[in-house]
Design a protein around this nucleic acid. Structure first.
Lengths: 113, 113
DNA sequence: TCCACTTGTTCTATATTCCCGAACTATTGA
DNA sequence: TCAATAGTTCGGGAATATAGAACAAGTGGA
């Protein structure tokens, strides 16, 4: 198993961030982690009732989020502790990420009405 | 030639917007149009010196931007008048788009240093 | 120590999407 | 009517995404 790559703050690109966030599964992961204020393992997103996402697919999504710079993952025994890099990113990009997550959140609310 | 489809403001999704903006060519188009305050035809992006983009590719990019809701295109004789929908989008999403375009613009500046 | 179990990654095949040249449509102006 | 211009559509090869299967690595109990 190769080590987990995390880009330095200055190597993160807007393009990478937006691409990573242009997928509903990834943005959900991103939003949950940003709210969590702590860490979550990957499997936490698997048995979410409604959507059965194969774990190989999930693994890819986490990799994309990680390499885009949106999340940080540390191996802790057999599992992965994922945390949001949004606080760092806010220093570089200001309220951009917050606005995007907010927009997604509002959209979710509307569709439930 | 089928008519140009433009989503209504309420049918525009964050996912569609972010996907459309996760491509360097499209975001450049988007940024130029947003700044232009007027309209531009597609061909204006073709002979931009450095990058030679085939027009079939450009046509696809404009279509994606249009169907994501980022731009509006009207046939005017043989050409297309493209304009930014950012003002409308700001009403729906607040400063999100502005923040994203700003972030791209800053990135451009940094890379030139 | 051995082994079953859990979490996540890698491999591989299929499916989907993207890119770009070529052919095409539609409009204008000579 | 015909050539020129601006975009679109089509088709095939390249790149990407998805998901099942095999694998790797750590944990804990017998």
């Amino acid at each position: 198993m190769r080590p987990l790559y995390h880009p330095a703050l200055e190597d993160i690109t807007v393009q990478g961030l937006l691409y990573a966030m242009s997928d509903p599964i990834r943005v959900r992961i991103c939003a949950e982690l940003a709210q969590a204020e702590g860490t979550m393992n990957c499997a936490a997103f698997l048995p979410n009732g409604k959507t059965k996402i194969p774990k190989s697919t999930l693994s890819q999504h986490f990799k994309i989020l990680r390499e885009a710079g949106l999340i940080r993952s540390e191996r802790k025994g057999v599992e992965l502790k994922n945390s949001s890099r949004c606080p760092e990113l806010r220093k570089k990009y200001g309220p951009m990420l917050t606005e995007i997550l907010q927009a997604y959140a509002n959209e979710g609310k509307e569709s439930k009405r």
